[in-house]
C-alpha cells in the first residue's frame, strides 16, 4: 500500500444470471470507483460468462447489465483479468468476449483493451499482490 491507496480486487466467480452476485458485484465496483483506489477485477470459474458478448436476457425477464462493463473505463477501472483455464474449460475463447476499451489520457487518449487474459498461475500472483479482495 502506497500513499493511502490500496489495491482492491473484485473476484467474480459466478454466472451473470441465476443469482444476483454478479450484478451486485458490479454495483460495488461502480461505487468503489469514487474512492480513488487501485482497482482490478478478476473473472474466473463461471464468472467468465459475465463478459460474453451479445447477451440477451429478454426471455428470462431480468436486466442485461453486461453493457455496463464497457463503461468501466470511464470510472478508471481498466484492469479486467480473465482466467484462460476457466475460458478453456467452458469452450470459450477471447473472441466470445465483448470488447472493453479504456482511453489512456497519458498517451493522447489512445484506446487500450481492458481485458487481459492470464493463466491460473498468473491469477494467483494477481491475488497475492492485493490489499483487499472482495469475492462474489
Amino acid at each position: 500500500m502506497t500513499d493511502g491507496v490500496k489495491k482492491f480486487l473484485y473476484v467474480n466467480r459466478k454466472a451473470p444470471y441465476g443469482t444476483i452476485y454478479a450484478l451486485e458485484s458490479l454495483e460495488v465496483v461502480l461505487i468503489g470507483a469514487a474512492f480513488d483506489q487501485d482497482v482490478s477485477l478478476a473473472f474466473l470459474d463461471d464468472g467468465v460468462f459475465q463478459l460474453v458478448k451479445s447477451q440477451d436476457t429478454k426471455e428470462i425477464g431480468v436486466k442485461n447489465f453486461s453493457p455496463t462493463f464497457r463503461a468501466l473505463g470511464d470510472y478508471e477501472v481498466t484492469k479486467l483479468f480473465v482466467e484462460q483455464e476457466s475460458l478453456d474449460e467452458r469452450g470459450l475463447t477471447a473472441d466470445d468476449l465483448q470488447e472493453i476499451m479504456w482511453e489512456d489520457e497519458d498517451e493522447d487518449y489512445v484506446e487500450k483493451p481492458s481485458i487481459r487474459i492470464i493463466s491460473r498461475t498468473e491469477m494467483a500472483d494477481v491475488m497475492a499482490d492485493q490489499d483487499v479482495i472482495l469475492s462474489f
Binding site: 461505487i31 468503489g32 483506489q37 483487499v132
Partner: peptide, 20 residues
C-alpha cells in the same frame, strides 16, 4: 447506509474478511 461504507472499511482496516 451505502456501499461506500464497505469500501471505506476495506481502506481503514488491516484485513477484510468475507463470510459467504
Amino acid at each position: 447506509s451505502g456501499l461506500g461504507q464497505l469500501i471505506e472499511m476495506g481502506i481503514d482496516t488491516d484485513r477484510l474478511m468475507t463470510f459467504g
